[in-house]
């Protein structure tokens, strides 16, 4: 494929925002006025281009924002879009603590400074064997961790999602069997890898709530459930931290959860994936080792038995 070498194009060059806003307002009419005004009010987020972006067309914004696994808002894929509007994301603060020299509480814009934002077009592979391509806006997690000055004993990074049952119906449910809040973790070297980011936006705008607003993790070579949403705490630890899915079903979800077509989920194959937005008759895509990021990350796991550390 020929690469575009001219001036940097944005989504606004494809469809100017004024045009789609106008179109939406025209179609929806007066009934949808609150929606139109909210979109118009959404600030745009500018991200510098990055060499880590892939050269594939992103999944449509409509699909990215309407097909989500965010069990705090319900089990159906449509539930997050339906119910996440209730979540208050302003003000928001993230505690960074544990084995760091400079623990503290930070605002979203302290962690992901507007001037440091990058656009990262990444593949996302869900453990349920479907995939998308998402144009994230965010900052390398490594920069955030470095500023907190990790101590020599720090070997892992633990993350925690907000616990707010009054705003998150899934956390009130007697079903599910999940021990809230949702927690995730990475090895420190995985967290420091340049591909790992904290995202605050997608498609050039702040993250919609259903996608993990206001700040979430994105680790593109791991199954989507590792990329924890709506983070309120980042803790550097000496020991491997507990992770939600691993606690719930340890045989099915490991700590590492690297995308790997050769290691099946006990209940289904991971060899291929359905491409979201490709239509009913689109062929399945062969899943790639480390979701196609093997060149960049395989070194992190050299000598490790990926069947044992799934």
């Amino acid at each position: 494929m020929q690469r575009w070498t001219g001036p940097k194009l944005t989504y606004a060059d494809v469809t100017p925002k004024a045009a789609w806003l106008g179109r939406r307002a025209f179609i929806a009419g007066a009934a949808a006025l609150p929606l139109a005004t909210r979109s118009a009010a959404a600030a745009t987020l500018q991200g510098k281009t990055s060499k880590w972006s892939i050269d594939e067309a992103p999944t449509s914004k409509a699909d990215i924002t309407s097909y989500n696994n965010y069990y705090e808002f319900g089990f159906d894929k449509e539930d997050p879009e339906r119910y996440a509007g209730k979540l208050t994301t302003k003000p928001w603060s993230v505690v960074i603590d544990g084995k760091v020299g400079r623990p503290g509480t930070y605002g979203v814009e302290d962690l992901a400074k507007p001037g440091a934002l990058e656009e990262r077009i990444y593949r996302l592979r869900c453990v349920e064997a479907w995939s998308m391509v998402i144009p994230w806006i965010g900052v390398p997690l490594a920069d955030v961790i470095a500023r907190a000055e990790p101590e020599p004993g720090a070997k892992y990074v633990a993350f925690e999602t907000v616990y707010r049952p009054d705003e998150m119906p899934g956390q009130r449910s007697v079903f599910g069997g999940i021990d809230w809040p949702y927690v995730e973790g990475l090895r420190l070297d995985e967290a420091m890898h340049p591909l790992t980011i904290l995202a605050t936006g997608l498609y050039g705008e702040p993250l919609p709530n259903q996608n993990g607003a206001p700040i979430r993790l994105v680790v593109p070579w791991k199954y989507g459930f590792k990329s924890i949403k709506s983070i309120v705490r980042i803790t550097l630890t000496e020991k491997q931290p507990p992770t939600t899915w691993n606690q719930l079903q340890p045989r099915e979800y490991g700590f590492y959860a690297n995308v790997n077509p050769n290691v099946s989920h006990p209940r289904w194959s991971q060899a291929t994936e359905r491409v979201i937005g490709a239509g009913v008759f689109a062929p399945r895509r062969d899943t790639e080792l480390f979701n196609g990021y093997a060149d960049a990350v395989a070194g992190l796991y050299s000598g490790m038995d990926l069947r044992k550390y799934y």
């Binding site: 699909d63 097909y67 894929k77 449509e78 479907w130 359905r274 979201i276 239509g279």
Partner: peptide
């Protein structure tokens, strides 16, 4: 609806 691609992001799963 599946043929018209009106079953959301993952029409195969929905059908």
């Amino acid at each position: 609806l599946a043929l018209l691609n009106r079953l959301g992001a993952d029409p195969v799963r929905a059908l």
